[in-house]
Design a binder for these strands. Structure first.
Lengths: 363, 363
DNA sequence: ATTAGCACTCAATGGTATCGAGTGCTAACA
DNA sequence: TGTTAGCACTCGATACCATTGAGTGCTAAT
């Protein structure tokens, strides 16, 4: 990805290498190829796009562009196909980010503004609407909230010998864990313990629970190991539940709409790839330096299995803290402008809704 | 499905229609076809299986079997392929349910006996291991627990104006729901309300909460609508969460291993079918009259999209109550004996583990 | 009743001819 | 000097045809 600081310098290099006409032709070729999935010939470009040039001229330019590595030829008497490098240039400098169509905006809005009171539900919903709108496969990681803080901790009696540990975070996420406690413990004592836990933990981040805090608790109340241990284990379990993150997928069968997956082997490769949740997760969460939308094209995805796919991804945040990401994956011949616009919009929308969800939990 | 009461009568009809030799031949053909996916010729049967018959004799028998509808011919000079009716006979009367291989038993055991403390997690695990062992696609519905009873209900204060409603069932399932309550409510009062709720609800099934019970509560404590309504809504939300059931899928890409899905259109059809969670759910939960393993072959599945697939399914129960089901779906050319044996075993295992989970929650 | 033998069928395979979209190159032109 | 018309060439795709071989049904002999 080209950082915006470098973009100016890049532009000069670019102008040296590619004059305006070459850029126009390259863009025309890629636009065409994205639409048709067929190698693009010089005649096609001369006819469809009003460049005022003959096919012969375009042919010469195409040969140049191929030599520079922006185009490739499947075989010597075929038209040209964009290379990863070609797509890269297209995404960074050539394409036009047009407005998102009204129906897509409406689609996103109506999907996201239904009353949702679970954080991960919101992300699920966002992923779903992305796959529907882009017609590619969408993926998203559920929020990781290690940095969120305790809002309340409670130990509630359930029946003799059993209690429930409950953890509530400032993001409004609630988890619980059933524990076994000594039979002799009275409900009143659990309330005292709860109060103390609250006092000690509220405001800390989930990651900050350590031996020191535990020691402080032990100092202030006479508590047996038989009671304390299960409670701490329960809290730990709640924390790990909150922090565990899964990957959601939507629109996996969308790939069958694209001719590049007409080959059963390609289709299998892609779908098998999507089955590897850990790799998927790594892919989605790697290289997310800034807060803009990131595009990974073809072999730029260092993972085997999707070297002929592109990934458009973005993060979402709670306040200033990035807590997860969402992406769209499809053939390198992807409708980048549309996907990127959608991604920009949904990212904004997720952040808005997350904020609402947490602040305005007061509904 | 043939009920066991009818099986004796069926057998007589069967013997009338098919002598021992025809049965042996039919079985040989189906066994062979299940292994190879190639139409089976008379020579193959004569050679591979020691029936002491020439190919010509077998040819005659095959013609008979075809006329009876147990076999079909893709084209006039090809071998025979079993029809749905043929598979039906095979499953009901011909195949041999051999012992499950030790490694499969071990696989199931080791997957199921890891410490799991969530009911639906257990089912997820079971589905996963089934897809791995059978090498087909497995599916399962999460437990539906409308008939389970309240073990505890609690309203816990979180912060001023907010409380958490918690419902625990006898199956050890816990759900919670954050609610908004009037600011003036004191924690002590919530404890009183909790105690009353417990008194009234514990022992009832989730489905039994009705206006009468609510009325009883209102009679016994002075409670404002502003507090009671959110609590009841919270309880309702918890119940609906407990009762909501999803479908899990595993091994969806396994189908690419089978030549019947070499055709991209077939593969798409199948995978798209699996995307329709509601239909899937209906399929899995329909026709589960008794507690044995049920096999639905080809067009017996009244749902479009899997007319060339077979489904082997079973229910699992908590005590005597069926609370969900698990199934394996694959081509009609399925290794029925192996799948059915696995299904029998995993069903038993799930029931065992469920029992342990609920009773021995006391760990 | 069983089977050897034989003519027949038909999908699959591989080879060949044809077609056409597209290229590169050359020569003519503005 | 850049552009373009014209032309020979390339090569995948398509269609056509002959061949092959696994498998069948039928008949006649055992």
């Amino acid at each position: 990805m080209v950082s915006s600081a470098n973009k100016g310098v890049m532009k000069v290099f670019l102008d040296d290498m590619l004059d305006e006409r070459k850029k126009r032709i390259l863009r025309a070729i890629i636009d065409d190829y994205i639409g048709t999935a067929e190698p693009v010939g010089s005649r096609t470009i001369a006819r469809k796009h009003e460049l005022g040039l003959s096919s012969a001229t375009i042919r010469n330019e195409m040969a140049d562009l191929e030599e520079m590595g922006f185009l490739a030829q499947p075989h010597s008497s075929a038209g040209r196909v964009p290379s990863d490098k070609g797509y890269r240039l297209y995404v960074d400098h050539l394409m036009e980010l047009n407005e998102l169509p009204v129906e897509d905006i409406e689609g996103i809005k109506s999907a996201m503004e239904v009353k949702i009171n679970e954080l991960s539900q919101l992300i699920r919903q966002a992923s779903m609407v992305m796959s529907r709108i882009t017609r590619y496969t969408s993926l998203a990681t559920t929020p990781q909230l290690k940095k969120s803080t305790f809002k309340a901790v409670q130990v509630v009696p359930i029946e003799t010998g059993k209690a429930l540990v409950i953890v509530v975070t400032d993001a409004g996420v609630v988890r619980n864990c059933l524990i076994r406690i000594p039979d002799a413990i009275l409900p009143d004592f659990l309330i005292k313990v709860s109060n103390l836990l609250n006092e000690k933990l509220v405001g800390l981040t989930l990651g900050q629970v350590d031996r020191k805090v535990v020691g402080e608790i032990q100092d202030e109340i006479i508590i047996t190991k038989e009671l304390l241990m299960p409670i701490l284990k329960g809290i730990a379990e709640c924390i790990s539940q909150i922090d565990s993150h899964e990957v959601f997928l939507d629109g996996t069968t969308n790939i069958f709409n694209y001719p590049e997956f007409r080959d059963i082997i390609k289709a299998k490769e892609f779908l098998s790839f999507l089955d590897q949740k850990e790799i998927l997760c790594g892919l989605l969460e790697s290289n997310l330096p800034n807060d803009s939308v990131v595009v990974k094209i073809g072999a730029e995805n260092c993972v085997d299995g999707i070297k002929e796919c592109s990934l458009v991804k973005a993060t979402y945040s709670l306040g200033d803290v990035v807590i997860g990401s969402i992406g769209v994956i499809g053939p390198t011949r992807m409708e980048y402008p549309r996907v990127i616009s959608s991604m920009n919009y949904i990212k904004k929308k997720i952040n808005q809704e997350l904020k609402k969800l947490v602040e305005g939990n007061t509904e």
